[in-house]
């Protein structure tokens, strides 16, 4: 297999994914492929299943039916296959709406914990790469502080550095700027933009439509657990084909 053929293999492939919370059918027959280097933005109304969708990719949610392959590892229904799950999680990073930094650890220790305990790298190596990553997201001089001593925007950038420290092949973002004060949204989006430019594969749930249009290779609109429309950003935003997409965009772009 040549390099280019390998690259065109999808890094995520979902087939006929179905997910229920009790009697609530949250994801309905989702088919989705993401190629290496692609930036996919997921949009949709509150409660439509966006978070659940990306949380299935790293096994934070189990699903009942269907199939997911992440970087060659199979995820099967009902959370079976713990080995594959562990592998997937070391290769897929995630950034959460509420940051979820570890409050009892310094910024540096937040970033080095997983490389030390999961990858088994040396302390020197972990520290060096933490410095480099914190520098890259613009907070190198905060390494000895605790998360509670940082602003929201800084915390989210630490969370990004923490995920990147595992050298993930795919990054998941679940509304990374929704918990931020407006003046801090920009700095987090800048860091994500930079990451996209460097070729990271990203799946981003966001309500930042301007950002979506700018960085996305593809936008997916989810309506009540179904993919209603999937297209390049210009097409989704300028000439949405589906009635439901048009209604949604009319509502959110008005504000």
């Amino acid at each position: 297999m040549t390099e280019s053929q390998h690259d065109s293999q999808p890094i995520v492939r979902m087939q006929k994914l179905n997910k229920h919370f009790g009697s609530l059918h949250v994801l309905k027959n989702i088919d989705l492929e993401v190629k290496p280097g692609e930036v996919v933005v997921v949009i949709g109304a509150s409660g439509s299943g966006k978070s659940t969708l990306i949380r299935c990719i790293n096994g934070l949610e189990e699903f009942q039916d269907g199939h997911i392959v992440v970087d060659g590892h199979n995820l099967v229904p009902h959370g079976k296959g713990a080995k594959a799950l562990q592998r997937i999680r070391t290769e897929v990073g995630m950034v959460f709406q509420q940051f979820n930094l570890f409050p009892h650890l310094s910024v540096r220790d937040n970033v080095t914990l997983a490389p030390l305990k999961v990858r088994g790298v040396s302390a020197a190596q972990a520290n060096e790469s933490a410095e480099r990553l914190l520098d890259r997201v613009g907070i190198r001089d905060q390494a000895d502080k605790y998360p509670s001593q940082l602003s929201g925007g800084q915390q989210q950038r630490v969370a990004l550095a923490r995920a990147l420290a595992m050298e993930p092949r795919l990054m998941l973002f679940d509304e990374p700027t929704s918990a931020l004060d407006p003046e801090m949204i920009g700095e987090v989006l800048d860091a994500m933009r930079e990451l996209a430019r460097e070729g990271m594969t990203m799946i981003i749930v966001t309500h930042e439509m301007g950002f979506a249009r700018e960085v996305a290779d593809r936008v997916i609109y989810i309506h009540q657990g179904e993919i209603a429309e999937e297209a390049a950003p210009e097409r989704i935003f300028d000439e949405p084909q589906d009635e439901r997409t048009r209604n949604f965009l009319a509502r959110v772009l008005k504000h």
């Binding site: 570890f102 914990l113 997983a114 923490r162």
Partner: peptide, 24 residues
């Protein structure tokens, strides 16, 4: 979210408990 963040970084459930949940 503490447990979810730990797991998403590849920590096992035991590691998540030992290094993240228990100290807090």
């Amino acid at each position: 979210g503490q447990r979810e963040a730990s797991l998403s970084l590849g920590l096992s459930r035991t590691q998540a408990f030992r290094y993240v949940i228990w100290p807090q």
